[in-house]
């Protein structure tokens, strides 16, 4: 579904990715892991088009991604940033409606379905985006991404700063999306969260993929653990 080959990218003159390759298979959850500063978020921003691709290629459903985030979003790449970025001046309902304007005539995801999926949002529909708790913001950010009827969901550290009970809820919801056939690319620091969801894992180190395998492989590979994730 999503294929990166020799991707070079970064911020202006500073290069962060030096030839990143990996493939996200349709219907799978692919976790991109590694220590801080190895280029995980940069990879995601390059995929959606916020950062320009300096070399290499990124293909989505067989054709190259666009330079504009807006076109990529229309083609079905939905991005949930680490910062969640809820529109604070809009209510929960308006945040969802805004994203829903993009979906076609018979959207798979409607506001009703999102609320059904995240019941916590139900009582908060008329609340302003600024009034939500961290967990509610994350649910809204994911719900907003779903409203665009995505083919792949790109999540940057969805558990960051959340209470364990909320993390469990989000975990269960992502599991539900996965069993529904959603393709997910996940960047996460919380290892057990990531391994519990992922089919495939890529470990990043200094802007490249240093190890790849299945989540089960990684569980049994103490060396990779130590080398790329241990602190």
């Amino acid at each position: 579904m999503l294929e990166l080959k020799g991707v070079v990218s970064g911020y202006g003159e500073t290069r962060v990715l030096h030839g990143t390759d990996f493939v996200v298979a349709a219907g799978s959850v692919h976790a991109l892991l590694g220590r801080n500063g190895v280029g995980k978020s940069t990879t995601l921003k390059t995929i959606i088009g916020h950062l320009p691709l300096q070399d290499g290629s990124i293909a989505f459903q067989g054709s190259s991604i666009d330079r504009s985030p807006q076109v990529n979003a229309r083609r079905g790449i939905a991005y949930v940033p680490e910062t969640r970025d809820i529109f604070g001046s809009l209510s929960v309902q308006e945040n969802l409606e805004l994203a829903g304007r993009l979906a076609g005539v018979n959207p798979e995801w409607t506001i009703a379905r999102v609320i059904d999926f995240f019941p916590n949002l139900k009582d908060r529909l008329s609340n302003g985006g600024q009034e939500l708790s961290g967990g509610e913001q994350q649910m809204l950010a994911i719900g907003r991404a779903l409203m665009t009827d995505p083919k792949v969901l790109v999540l940057d550290e969805p558990t960051e700063g959340l209470a364990p009970i909320i993390i469990q809820q989000i975990f269960a919801k992502l599991k539900e999306l996965k069993s529904g056939g959603m393709t997910v690319l996940l960047v996460e620091q919380n290892l057990s969260f990531a391994l519990g969801l992922a089919d495939d894992v890529s470990l990043m180190s200094r802007g490249q993929i240093a190890w790849r395998g299945t989540a089960t492989d990684l569980r049994n590979d103490d060396v990779a653990h130590e080398k790329y994730l241990g602190v």
């Binding site: 959606i48 916020h50 504009s68 985030p69 807006q70 990529n72 979003a73 229309r74 939905a78 991005y79 940033p81 970025d85 529109f87 604070g88 001046s89 809009l90 308006e94 409606e97 805004l98 994203a99 304007r101 993009l102 907003r144 991404a145 665009t148």
Partner: peptide, 24 residues
């Protein structure tokens, strides 16, 4: 209207709006 919502989104985070597929 819906346009007003988009305008608010434009104000608070243009990048995010683009990533939701809106032609800013």
């Amino acid at each position: 209207s819906g346009f007003g919502r988009t305008l608010s989104g434009l104000h608070s985070n243009e990048d995010r709006l683009q990533a939701l597929g809106v032609n800013t």
